[in-house]
Design a protein around this nucleic acid. Structure first.
Length: 599
RNA sequence: CGGGAUGUGGCUCAGCUUGGUAGAGCGCAGCGUUCGGGACGCUGAGGCCCGGGGUUCGAAUCCCCGCAUCCCGACCA
């Protein structure tokens, strides 16, 4: 492709409408333009990058038994009423009526449509399993679209749905998709983590989120340095182990702590560390009184508490309730003698003793408390937020915190939709059974934004070779110089022959102008052809990622260029695989299961 | 849905406090000089100043009502 005959409307200045880096750079690099809030046109290079992402998604989905199809964007309201989501989905579902006054919506997802299709077509267990997917434009009428492609209203998504005859089959389908997703993100050349998501009542690890690692990510992830374990910070498991401690040698003793009701105040007054205090947090859980005990220097994780109690409503107790249950004003509750239905303690409290707690008496605390001796604790459970001091719950390795952008989510649906829409099959014994489903999403357009969030510098985008609209840009420095033009054309043709997606910057512009533009659009490699180089029989190759400029002899250009290119591919965890001598498909060369690449 | 901000040439913005009929830089067109990190000079085109009402002799500027966009939060998953 020749730049002079192409369409890449770059911007020199940051657009006022953009806040986050990927949004700014997508606009500045001429990849997208906004039509209206949360809705963007993909310009040629933006669309090209999206197609490259889609191609890898498609390739890996097919490899892991997915079958591509395409469903309508517009869906009848009746179908959504049948699944119960016409009411449940809320305003995010864009609804409208046709000329006959019938209800319709624009699909934010396709469980209803695919389940409707399958219930009509699937009769027998012999027809299953199936995994059907599509890559399609979705619409969700977000209350507040923001960050460009990161959270648009209209966006491109790959959504897959699996259909199995039993749980074992569904688990196999799920595992296939998990592996496919790992492979997809490896081949895209992105640093990512598969994160265990809240599997809720289903149990087991049946939900994973795939997070592209980027400092600007919205989610915080706790990840293990030694194994694959990673989880959203608020979901990360805390494991505590150790020998049971001896009973405290001293009896519990009441001390006056007038007006001191925060951890810091009490710890300071009694000259102990906050870690020797126990916070007693009182909750109203579905009408029952519950006390959660946690070390003074820790944070309670309410989601963990709620899941543990398996209640629908969990609220902190009102001051009145606190007084009623503890017999003291807020700030002086303690486990000893507390009048609540249930006392639950955090795991780590069982490995220590000689605590300071509230005395259930205003202006008083107890010291030398031994939980086993002095309180009726019904159980020790993981109740607190994960900290970086904690170790990996799987392999005891060290954990670190990182930020991520959710780009994929896989989970087992079970029979939620097959039940609602009566999608059944006859099993071997002729008995009618519900189809077991799973669904698997990838935000294709969000990947483009996430890639830029992860890979950019002050000059612009640094695309991974797999996503770059053009892997190489050949810059003809002075196009009016016949020799320069001829040499640039020659290199351009040679690279094309190697099967590389290459752009020839043949514009009649000043060098500085062209350098800035080329850096901005983010191609991983640049070949600079100038009069000076030609005189010395060298070409210059610039590696976008590092800024390195390498002079290579004109005579063995192809050989040297290929070597440099392979180094760049390796940096993104990729190797070239030449097929039919032409098509340069990019392959991840990392072993499967290894999900992170280091700089 | 609550809070905040902004709408002026294609883009980024000034002008608004203190009303007098619109500016800069970039971009665009032409000419010349330049030519390895977004050059310089000259000439030129381009604006119902978001929309609608009002106040006033006179409104980009003051008042009221809309609309749009962006940011924070809540909501949603």
């Amino acid at each position: 492709m020749r730049w002079s005959r192409y369409f890449i409307p770059t911007l020199k200045e940051d657009p006022a409408e953009a806040e986050v880096i990927s949004h700014k750079l997508l606009l500045r690099a001429g990849m997208i333009r906004k039509l209206t809030s949360g809705i963007y046109t993909y310009l040629p290079t933006g669309w090209k990058a999206l197609q490259k992402i889609s191609a890898i998604v498609r390739q890996e989905m097919n490899r892991f038994k997915g079958i591509e199809m395409l469903m309508p964007a517009v869906q009848p309201g009746d179908l959504w009423a049948e699944s119960g989501r016409w009411e449940a989905y809320g305003k995010e579902l864009l609804r409208f009526k046709d000329r006959h006054d019938r209800d319709y919506c624009i699909g934010p997802t396709h469980e209803e449509v695919i389940t409707d299709l399958l219930r009509r077509e699937i009769k027998s267990y012999r027809q299953l399993p199936l995994n059907l997917y599509q890559i399609q434009t979705k619409f969700r009428d977000e209350i507040r679209p923001r960050f460009g492609l990161m959270r648009g209203r209209e966006f491109i998504m790959k959504d897959a749905y699996s259909f199995d005859i039993d749980d074992a089959g569904a688990s196999d389908s799920y595992e296939d998709m998990r592996r496919a997703y790992i492979s997809i993100f490896e081949k895209l050349g992105l640093k990512f983590r598969a994160v265990e998501a809240d599997s809720g009542a289903i149990g087991g690890s049946f939900s994973h989120e795939f997070m592209v690692l980027a400092e600007t990510g919205e989610d915080t992830i706790a990840a293990c340095t030694d194994c694959d374990y990673a989880a959203n910070l608020e979901k990360a498991e805390v494991r505590c182990e150790g020998p049971d401690c001896e009973e405290c040698s001293m009896p519990a003793e009441k001390v006056a702590t007038p007006g001191l009701h925060t951890v810091e105040q009490v710890a300071g007054f009694l000259e102990v560390s906050p870690g020797k205090l126990i916070k007693t947090m009182l909750y109203n859980a579905d009408g029952k009184s519950v006390a959660a005990l946690i070390r003074g220097d820790r944070e309670l994780n309410e989601v963990k508490l709620k899941n543990l109690l398996d209640v629908t409503s969990l609220e902190m107790a009102s001051p009145e309730e606190v007084e009623k249950w503890s017999g003291a004003k807020v700030g002086f509750a303690g486990p000893a003698g507390l009048k609540v239905d249930r006392i639950i303690a955090d795991l780590e409290l069982q490995f220590d003793t000689d605590w300071v707690t509230g005395a259930n008496e205003t202006d008083a605390h107890l010291r030398h408390v031994d939980l086993k001796r002095d309180a009726r604790v019904s159980g020790y459970h993981d109740l607190r937020n994960f900290t970086t001091e904690d170790f990996c719950p799987r392999c005891r390795g060290n954990m670190y915190l990182t930020k991520g952008i959710e780009v994929g989510h896989i989970f087992k649906l079970g029979t939620k939709y097959s039940k609602a829409l009566k999608a059944t099959f006859l099993d071997e014994s002729g008995k009618e059974q519900l189809i077991i489903m799973g669904c698997y999403g990838i935000g294709v357009s969000r990947i483009l934004a996430a890639c830029i969030e992860q890979n950019h510098d002050r000059d612009g985008i640094i695309f991974t070779p797999a996503i770059a609209p053009f892997e190489v840009v050949v810059i003809a420095l002075n196009i009016k110089d016949d020799l320069v033009r001829e040499q640039a054309e020659k290199i351009y043709e040679r690279l094309k022959d190697l099967g590389i997606d290459v752009l020839l910057d043949d514009r009649d512009e000043r060098p500085g102008f062209k350098f800035k533009d080329v850096d901005l659009i983010g191609s991983p490699l640049q070949v600079v052809v100038g009069a000076k180089g030609i005189k010395n029989r060298v070409y210059e190759v610039k590696i976008r990622q590092t800024g390195e400029r390498l002079e290579i002899p004109a005579d063995d250009f192809v050989q040297e260029f290929t070597r440099i290119r392979n180094d760049v591919l390796a940096h993104f965890g990729l190797t070239p695989a030449v097929k039919n001598g032409k098509e340069a498909l990019l392959q991840a060369h990392k072993p499967q299961g290894s999900v992170e690449f280091n700089h």
